[in-house]
Design a protein around this nucleic acid. Structure first.
Lengths: 207, 207
DNA sequence: AAAAAGAGTAACCATTTAGTTACTTTTTCA
DNA sequence: TGAAAAAGTAACTAAATGGTTACTCTTTTT
């Protein structure tokens, strides 16, 4: 494949990411993508075969980018588990803030009943992440007084719930509860509260 | 309006709720709704004027039903704030479990940048809810050792994050972390953990 | 009972949409 | 340098889609 073609393909993918993130699978238009990318529609089909295949390529490209960052963070050794939680929370918040397409593509996929995740056999793909979290939870179970019912899975659910959900419901909540969650300052305040909450959660306070 | 017409309208609305919840605005088809409802397409336009208006009717019908339940719960007086938290968490989880359309319609609206919420001027519509939560937070601030940075808004974000987000990410997470979040037993276990976490959060443990 | 009003339908229309075909332009390399 | 290969395009197609029109059937009212 020529250099020129490589660039064209990348351009299509980048525009498609914007379009699919913004509009979802059914809302997105191949014509709109071809126009915005400044590329003939037939070329899209030459490189990606169908709307669905293009969509899947976008979805996994966006998802894998996040997964990489997440693994990187959890792979760090010899870090105090409290510090690790703090870093994890900060990473998750800032990543979502800076990469709204990641949040949106995941939401579309959930509304699509995880159809493409199922196709791709992502079953138990978070196992290495869970192992990383296991380290945190184990340290807490030994040292602190973390509820024995809380395993790595439950801890991860808690963390995702407190971080990711800030973004999934941002638009409606900002309308109804009277704060502007899109504001970076507002988010930074939230990071602080969530970090403290999670550290307290694993480190003490549980009867 | 005749009784027969009233029933037809209700039937359309009910099928439309299923269709829009499942497919979203762009994915839903008026033809599919008319067919499933066993009603001529022109009738839909007679009663609802446009696809968009039908969609909005569904969205607010679903949303208002939840808001009512939520207000009811928070309006209860003379209840211990810990008990109130527990009840709130249970209500939120079970409501979402039994009414997936509520969860999905809210997700679609978030992905739609809260366009219809903005139109309807729902700004600060959670004020009475926040007042109810204020009671909980105040009691905790007086009696316990809740972080002074946590006001009613932050508490509500925490609660929503821990409850609602269980459902928004259920489909992808069930694929990747190796538990079946769709299982009621699994959810009941989660309710317990979340309740305890929130009670600890407001009631002690915060330095 | 009959006519007015309301509920409901069959068939149609204009536009949009994913996808294709037959062609031209640009690059590579013997 | 020229022909083969790769990159890219204009114009088209068939199907689907939101919406409408002109009509029939049913209920209400006097």
């Amino acid at each position: 494949m020529q250099d020129r073609a490589e660039k064209t393909k990348a351009k299509i993918l980048s525009i498609a990411e914007e379009e699919f993130s913004a509009m979802g699978y059914y809302g997105a238009r191949i014509d709109a993508i071809s126009e915005k990318a400044g590329v003939n529609k037939a070329l899209i089909y030459k490189y990606f075969n169908s709307k669905e295949e293009l969509y899947k390529t976008v979805l996994f490209s966006v998802y894998d980018r996040f997964s990489f960052e997440e693994s990187e963070l959890l792979a760090i050794q010899d870090m105090d588990y409290k510090e690790k939680i703090r870093r994890y929370v900060e990473m998750e918040f800032r990543y979502c803030f800076d990469n709204p397409n990641y949040v949106r593509m995941l939401m579309w996929e959930n509304l699509n009943f995880a159809k493409y995740f199922k196709e791709r056999e992502l079953r138990n793909s978070k196992d290495t992440i869970l192992q990383g979290v296991e380290g945190i939870v184990k340290a807490a179970h030994e040292k602190g007084t973390l509820d024995q019912h809380v395993d790595a899975t439950q801890f991860l659910l808690t963390l995702y719930g407190l971080c990711f959900s800030y973004f999934t419901n941002m638009n409606t909540l900002s309308e109804t509860i009277g704060i502007n969650m899109h504001d970076r300052e507002e988010m930074e305040r939230r990071i602080e509260i969530v970090s403290n909450l999670l550290i307290t959660f694993v480190d003490g306070g549980m009867r």
